[in-house]
Nucleic acid binder design. Structure first.
Length: 111
DNA sequence: ATGCTGACTGGGG
DNA sequence: CCCCCAGCCAGCA
């Protein structure tokens, strides 16, 4: 009965669709859901994603490829370790090869 | 209701 | 890519 939950579900669905070794931005997901102006809500939804499993929130970063949400994970560098473990190069909480690992739902999902 | 904060983004320089 | 400014939306004191 809450449209908000639908929004959450969408975010989770897309997040799960993110391939291994790839990342995307909050804005990309927000835009894909039709709420490009509410990119913050995506991050907010991701925050709640901790309540659910199988949500690779570590694969979601800001448009700069900066691990803005790393502070919300258990450890201090857990997010970076997870990404590096997938072959993503990170330096100073920033994805170096962002252009190479960036995953655009519009480009990959919507043909 | 008011003000602040936040896992954000786009545009201009 | 980085910095600054303004817009957006939801939650909280």
């Amino acid at each position: 009965m809450n449209n908000s939950e639908n929004f959450f579900s969408k975010v989770y669905t897309v997040a799960k669709l993110i391939p291994h070794g790839r990342v995307t931005s909050y804005g990309a997901i927000a835009k894909y859901l039709g709420v490009a102006k509410s990119a913050r809500m995506v991050g907010w939804a991701m925050n709640a994603s901790h309540n659910i499993d199988e949500i690779p929130a570590h694969r979601v970063v800001n448009r700069n490829g900066l691990l803005t949400g790393k502070h919300h994970f258990d450890g201090t560098n857990l997010m970076q370790q997870l990404l590096e473990s997938e072959g993503i190069i990170i330096k100073e909480n920033k994805i170096q090869n962002l252009n190479a690992v960036f995953w655009d739902p519009f480009k990959e999902l919507n043909t």
